[in-house]
Amino acid sequence: MRTEKINRRNWLKKGVLTAGGVIAAPYLSFAETSRTPITLDLNGDAIYSPFFKEYLLDTEREFPVLSAKLNANENPYGPSPKALEALKTNAFKGNRYAWKELFELMDKIAEVEGVQRENIMMGPGSSDLLEKTAVTLFMNGGNVVSADPAYMSLIRVAEAAGGTWKAVPLKENWSHDLKAMEAAIDKDTKLVYICNPNNPTGTITEYNELLDFCSRVSEKVPVFIDEAYLGFLEDGAKKSMVSLVNEGKDVIIARTFSKIHGMAGLRVGYAVAQKATLDRLQKITRAGMGISYPSVFAAMAAMDDVEFLDQSRALNAACREYVYQSLDAMGIAYVPSHTSFMIFPIEMEGKDFLQKMTDLKVGVRAFNFMGKNWCRVSMGTMEEMKIFTSALKDVIA
């Protein structure tokens, strides 16, 4: 299959792509990596690996007006009331840098995570931290070992910086194939990357197996565990790999306020790792410089709003259950999810499916992996999910 390398920054300057005009992010691949090159096939779809691609819309430059925007894993209920109040109260200080205040947030996070402030690095969302890690580690080559399919932010930047991706297919039960991943490590491996729960599949790798893997493998090579969706688990805090930091293991754990906290547009995330690791990363970045003064206070307030977090988790689970039942009624076998999104197979070409759903004002994502076409749908409000299932019935009828 002939492919073509195109830089997405240049696409935006031109307005449209030559292959029919592929619309900009978030319909175009992963919005967090808009400055990195991707590979398109002749149909204008994004090729991530020989076994993993994303279907992209062929449409006009303007974003379609959606009745249900379910393509970016955004929490439809946030930010929390406490976070909003803190944001409004501190908005007038938006002319100031938030260094002192950022340290207060770091202290709060360190206390919750059971580590020291020196083990915390802030960033404008966790994707920013994934990408800065990739730039730091792969500017002189090397490879990253991860699952396939995986969240592509770190991987795309690693490739752009000069690294390569050693993709290891997920197991049939959709968990990480940890044995195969360990076997894939070689003398050029600079990082193992694990997204758990995994995006785009919504699936999880068993805690004890992953803990053992991270503990052992981090003695050979750093392990990056992306826990962006951990908050949607009822016992998420108990399933984190963060305890390994206090054991001196060379692990990096990323968290974000974008998902369960509903603060995707306010851009706050953090990494937990050994001080030496963070010192290395901060040689090329000023860590929390990208976080605004009001966002710092919104994040601190959000951490205290346990009622909002519990409500978001419960509403998300209720919407997931509704979609499960709806898919059951349509005879569609879905993959059970541990996140704020889920996947299910579609028996039609992915680009055509995307276009038909968009025509009905529903935004979703479409992929091809494991030899099948899949829809990934985010959980919105119950009203949005009813719009989604109604549109889906019309599309597959």
Results as ranks from 00 to 15, higher is better:
H176M: 11
L102R: 05
M152S: 06
E85H: 12
N95T: 15
A83Y: 02
L84G: 08
D188C: 14
K132T: 13
G202L: 07
G202V: 04
V157S: 04
Y193A: 08
A150Q: 12
V168L: 06
E118F: 05
K220Y: 02
Y151I: 15
E101Y: 04
G78M: 09
P79M: 09
P222D: 01
W174E: 08
N196Y: 02
R216H: 08
L102W: 00
L191T: 01
V144R: 05
P81I: 10
G125E: 03
F138M: 11
W165M: 05
K220R: 11
P197G: 04
D188Q: 15
V221C: 06
L170Y: 00
N90M: 14
S146E: 04
E182I: 05
A158E: 02
I185N: 02
P197S: 06
L191G: 01
E206I: 09
V217Q: 02
L130A: 14
P222Q: 01
A183Q: 13
A86Q: 06
W165A: 04
G142E: 05
K100Q: 11
D186Q: 05
K100W: 09
M152K: 02
L87R: 05
E182V: 08
T201V: 08
V217S: 02
G202A: 07
P149H: 03
K132Y: 12
W165P: 03
I185G: 04
L211T: 05
I185E: 04
E182G: 10
Y207W: 09
I120Q: 00
P169H: 05
K108V: 09
D177G: 08
E159K: 15
K171S: 14
V144E: 03
L191N: 01
P124M: 07
V217E: 00
C214E: 00
K82W: 10
V157E: 06
I109Q: 00
Y151H: 14
K187V: 12
K166I: 11
I185S: 06
Y193M: 08
F138W: 07
N199W: 06
T205M: 05
K171R: 15
N196D: 08
P79G: 09
V192L: 06
S153H: 03
K190A: 05
G114F: 00
T205S: 05
K108T: 11
W174T: 07
C195L: 04
L210R: 03
A98S: 13
Y193G: 03
A158W: 00
G142A: 07
M106I: 09
V135W: 12
A150K: 05
A86M: 10
G94L: 10
L84Y: 04
H176L: 13
P124N: 07
A83N: 09
A183N: 13
N208A: 15
E131L: 10
N143V: 07
A98N: 07
Y207N: 12
L170A: 04
K187E: 15
A134R: 03
K166W: 05
C214H: 00
W99A: 14
K108D: 13
P169G: 07
I155D: 01
R156V: 11
G141M: 10
K220V: 06
R117T: 11
